[in-house]
Design a protein around this nucleic acid. Structure first.
Lengths: 257, 257
DNA sequence: CGATAAGTTGAACTGGCTCAAGTCATGTGG
DNA sequence: CCACATGACTTGAGCCAGTTCAACTTATCG
């Protein structure tokens, strides 16, 4: 069964500059420069075409728009194309507990796979776009493309490890270590996307960061001020510069990398 | 392609009492009474036979024995047959951070799928046994049995949700809520296995519980004493009786179930 | 039975929280 | 395009839940 050449032709008709821009909503998986972070990695070109057929590409969202809501039926997973997103749950007391930060190339929505219901909500932190992949189609395609199944198993495995790292961070480390770790995490993920590892804009507010890290917003603010006083980072509201990454790693108690 | 009848014959030759006992190491997946919690659920009987062929069944371990170690190559996932296990990581400072508690019917080792290396270690908390499922065989079989693929996706999804719940618990709740939640979690899991939901033995020490919940062992001890004084639980060392589950749920701030 | 690990309880200390009062950024409507 | 409202952020002061340290009791097991 040959796949339709539609996506290829489309890509061929678009000038290269536009094609290579991942913010262009019509760019297909094979041409998306986030492909190497996202699902297509580990697939050969004919497989990517088949994946392309089930992907709903490039829908746009504004800040505050929901990708899905807690309790909603799980239908799709979402690949972030541009912008940034957070996931959160609403606690018994009605407070918001941030459970994840997602940047371009990362996959959201896997929290719905286990029970067919999303266990949390996902909203855009700024203007952004994403690809939607209906899960039943992905499952079906995965039985026919073993490397896709393997890729997705691995992706879910990484999500598990990521969540456990977060758990370890929050349950055993001091507030300063948690903040330092978050900064290093964002830095590393930017680096993977060929963006600056030392200058970036925090997509979350102090309150969101605090919720994510299990501290209050005041503590986050105080830690930023302290790290700035120690010349480890420069903080200008949401604009961050990592001045001394080694010192930051020491504070985060990270030795590897 | 018919599967070998070996496992079936084996089961047929064993008296029912032995067959139905999940601690009997030779019981096959189709006869294991943990099957409904474990991988076989969602498979029909011929599919279970094919699964049976790749499962290494019923190996036994003593307290303190390792199932796998942090950093080790990932080869298999493990289904707990009897006993209880913990997973943990060793932090930079050499301290042990408990990341999970596993009871019969539950699957361990999924932390290795993402990177082909186990991100933590797993040890037996008491005498126990398990089934080992080589992951490459499971993957291969999953491409041929869609319902097995689906089952495993769902299992990984549940692991993700479980880890996120733990994160939420640790990052937003008071120590007493965390302890209460752990007791309720064990109670619920016992209930699923048709064991007492109100009387059980804690498989972990106070130090392990504390590490898992992100508090000190002294705090765990004090909370047990306090809950006992309030007639919510009865604590006799590791032996626990849940006296007033409703009160415990109120303390844990759980409203559903 | 004795050694060692596990658990309890008390007392003092402290990191992060709460509450409060302010400044700064952002964006919306007049 | 400015003014003003609202949300985001900072900083200070006092407080408290949980930690730390310590002394002791109780289990467990070779």
């Amino acid at each position: 069964m040959k796949s339709t050449p539609k996506a290829v032709n489309l890509a061929k008709d678009i000038p290269y500059a536009a094609r290579s821009c991942h913010t262009n909503p019509s760019v297909s998986c094979g041409d998306c420069r986030l492909g190497e972070l996202c699902l297509p990695i580990a697939l050969d070109s004919s497989e990517i075409l088949r994946l392309d057929e089930i992907v709903k590409r490039g829908r746009a969202l504004n800040k505050g728009d929901f990708l899905y809501r807690e309790g909603e039926e799980f239908k799709s997973i979402f690949a972030i194309r541009s912008g940034s997103f957070k996931t959160f749950k609403t606690t018994h007391e009605g407070a918001e507990q941030v459970t994840g930060l997602f940047l371009p190339g990362e996959i959201m929505g896997m929290d719905g796979i286990g029970s067919n219901k999303h266990s949390g909500s996902a909203v855009a932190l700024e203007t952004g776009s994403f690809c939607e992949i209906p899960f039943h189609l992905l499952e079906e395609l995965s039985t026919r493309i073993p490397s896709l199944q393997g890729r997705f198993f691995r992706l879910m495995g990484q999500e598990i490890v990521k969540d456990q790292q977060m758990l370890t961070l929050v349950s055993s480390n001091a507030a300063e270590e948690r903040v330092a770790s978050l900064l290093l995490s964002i830095s590393k993920r930017n680096h993977r996307r060929k963006l600056s590892a030392t200058h970036f804009r925090l997509p979350m507010t102090r309150a969101e960061i605090g919720s994510y890290l299990g501290v209050t917003l005041e503590t986050v603010s105080r830690i930023f001020s302290r790290l700035q006083k120690q010349n480890v980072v420069k903080v200008d509201n949401k604009e961050i510069e990592l001045v001394d990454i080694q010192a930051l790693k020491r504070i985060a108690k990270v030795h590897e990398d």
